[in-house]
Simulated assay, not measured.
Amino acid sequence: MEIKGLRKIEPYVAGSQPTGKNIIKLNTNENAYGPSLAVHQTLASFDAHQLRKYSTLDQAVLRQALSEQLGVPANQVIIGNGSDDILSMAFLAFFNSAEEVLFPDLTYGFYKVWADLYHIPFREVPLSSSFEIDSQDYLVENGGIVLTNPNAPTGIYKPLDQIEEIVKA
């Protein structure tokens, strides 16, 4: 049943998640080794009482520290509530045409969710028989392209010159 004023979207369904105690789930970026000794030391001396206050909205201190670490201007650093939040902002900011946004049919499943939610036309582009992205498939009119490099979940890396070929086209 459709209700006027509500969007109908298919929710993202995460892959199977084993629940055993001695399992490291690489598909959710779990770390087999745990935090470094430096993290343990920092947490031991951290004043947890600081967590009672809401952080600044511009995250200026963090952005400046990352700017210095990465060697880029602070105004080129974006802070979000995880990668899905950043992806949401990117979809809203960059995909505003009637042309389809292109992304591989075997990639991170949330791209389709954001496209559906924001009414962005998209097309999932099939991978080759060897599960690789074929650059030629992306050299067409489009409203944007989303590529993860190396591709997730195949792990296949596309050399920079091939990515640049797609971007230039």
Rank of each mutant, 00 (worst) to 15 (best):
M1N: 13
I3K: 13
K4C: 06
G5T: 06
R7K: 15
E10Q: 11
Y12H: 10
V13Q: 15
G15C: 04
G15P: 08
G15Y: 05
T19S: 13
G20A: 12
K21D: 12
I23Q: 08
I23S: 05
L26G: 07
N27E: 12
T28P: 00
T28V: 14
T28E: 15
N29R: 10
G34Y: 04
G34Q: 07
V39K: 14
V39Q: 13
Q41A: 13
T42R: 07
L43W: 02
L43A: 06
S45D: 15
F46I: 09
F46K: 09
A48F: 12
L51E: 08
R52C: 09
R52P: 07
Y54C: 12
T56H: 06
L57W: 04
L62W: 01
R63F: 02
R63V: 01
Q64K: 14
L70K: 08
L70Y: 14
V72P: 06
A74Y: 06
N75G: 03
I86W: 12
L87S: 05
L87V: 03
S88D: 14
L92C: 09
L92Q: 14
F94A: 09
F95A: 06
N96F: 02
S97Q: 08
S97A: 04
A98N: 13
P104H: 02
T107D: 14
F110P: 05
V113E: 02
V113T: 07
A115S: 05
A115M: 03
H119A: 13
R123Y: 01
R123P: 00
V125G: 01
L127Q: 03
S128I: 02
S130Y: 02
I133K: 12
D134Y: 01
S135D: 09
Q136S: 12
Y138W: 03
E141F: 01
E141P: 10
G143S: 04
G143H: 06
N149Q: 07
P150E: 14
P150D: 13
N151L: 04
P153Q: 00
T154Q: 08
G155H: 07
K158V: 12
D161W: 11
D161Q: 11
Q162T: 03
I163S: 02
E164S: 09
E165S: 07
V167N: 05
K168G: 04
